[in-house]
Nucleic acid binder design. Structure first.
Length: 184
DNA sequence: GGGACGATGTAT
DNA sequence: TACATCGTCCCT
């Protein structure tokens, strides 16, 4: 239930499974205190379910990169892709390799650059590799509850054609009414 | 030690 | 549809 108050999402929220969190995150507020305070609204996410999900990095097992995903929920998982872009993820579940990728946000205040794609939003908000493995229960990056969106669309995930039978799993969610959902 | 390969974005 | 560019994974 949404009472119009700005309530920081807590550990219980993040400990739910990735699919539930991914869908619940649509419409939530993202607050970043990197350089300056920036407020945005999440409009597109993807769920990565764990080691059994071939599109999920934790399917590689416990490695230096994936160890954050195998740790407690409510932590950031930030990694570099194509040597160029950083991807911002949220660890969910119960230390079992789950995460949610934030694919697009809508600027609410103090954001100039485009945020309609996973690489673009990290650049606009200043999220880099140095923000990997930090708690979302502190103040650098955190989320607040918000009014539920009108209509959430579910589709298959983007850019994971290598993931065999997981390629078409309906694990991408976006706000039907947002103009900031990623292209492709 | 080294090669292949991306949860992308932009320009052609 | 070409390609930039580098951390990570795995040794093809």
């Amino acid at each position: 239930m949404w009472f119009g108050e700005l309530i920081k999402l807590d550990k219980d929220f993040y400990q739910q499974d990735a699919k539930t969190v991914a869908k619940a995150l649509i419409g939530k507020r993202l607050i970043t205190n990197i350089g300056s305070k920036k407020i945005s609204r999440i409009v597109e996410t993807e769920a990565y379910l764990g080691p059994h999900d071939l599109a999920c990095h934790s399917a590689k097992g416990l490695t230096t990169r994936t160890k954050v995903m195998f740790g407690p929920a409510a932590k950031t998982y930030v990694y570099l892709i194509y040597g160029i872009h950083t991807m911002f993820n949220i660890v969910t579940g119960n230390s079992d390799g789950q995460a949610v990728l934030i694919r697009a946000v809508e600027p609410v205040s103090l954001i100039k650059a485009n945020t309609n794609g996973p690489g673009k939003l990290t650049k606009a908000l200043g999220i880099g590799l140095e923000h990997n493995d930090i708690s979302l229960l502190n103040n650098t990056i955190y989320l607040e509850d918000a009014k539920p969106v009108n209509k959430i669309i579910t589709t298959s995930r983007i850019g994971i054609d290598y993931a065999k039978e997981w390629k078409d799993a309906p694990l991408r969610f976006y706000d039907f009414d947002s103009k900031f959902v990623s292209k492709r």
